[in-house]
């Protein structure tokens, strides 16, 4: 009974991770400009790979493996926003445009303010 419960949790994590990866890929193709595509790639994509790593840790069933999987999960969750912010800042500073439906651009006169 216990192993069936563990298998169900693992299967849920696997399918959830794959679903998040699929949502991220669809968002990457459907969203209008670079800055909105970054939302899909850096949030849903990171959660997808992180859930799959957690599934490995739960499936193995011993503490060291689970701790390593948890460390990997936190590593991805910490590094994805850093890289996404760096890339968005570089692209905005260089002058890649926002899409036409954008409402406001908070960083329009960022260079003049600092």
């Amino acid at each position: 009974m216990m192993d069936i419960l563990l298998a169900a949790i693992t299967a849920l994590l696997i399918l959830g991770g794959a679903g998040f990866a699929l949502v991220a890929a669809i968002g990457l193709n459907r969203l209008p400009d670079l800055y909105t595509r970054m939302h899909a790639a850096s949030k849903a994509g990171t959660v997808g790979s992180g859930l799959l790593l957690l599934a490995v840790g739960v499936h193995a069933g011993d503490l060291p493996t689970f701790a390593r999987a948890l460390a990997g999960f936190f590593f991805f969750v910490l590094t994805a926003p850093i890289s996404a912010h760096l890339l968005a800042m570089a692209a905005h500073k260089v002058g890649y445009p926002l899409c036409a439906e954008s409402v406001r651009d908070e960083m329009k006169d960022y260079d003049k303010r600092i």
Partner: peptide
Amino acid sequence: TLPDRVVALDMLTGIVIG
């Protein structure tokens, strides 16, 4: 543009980790 491709390559790394 180039940043679009970079974002997609970052996403590819995540999928390969999966």
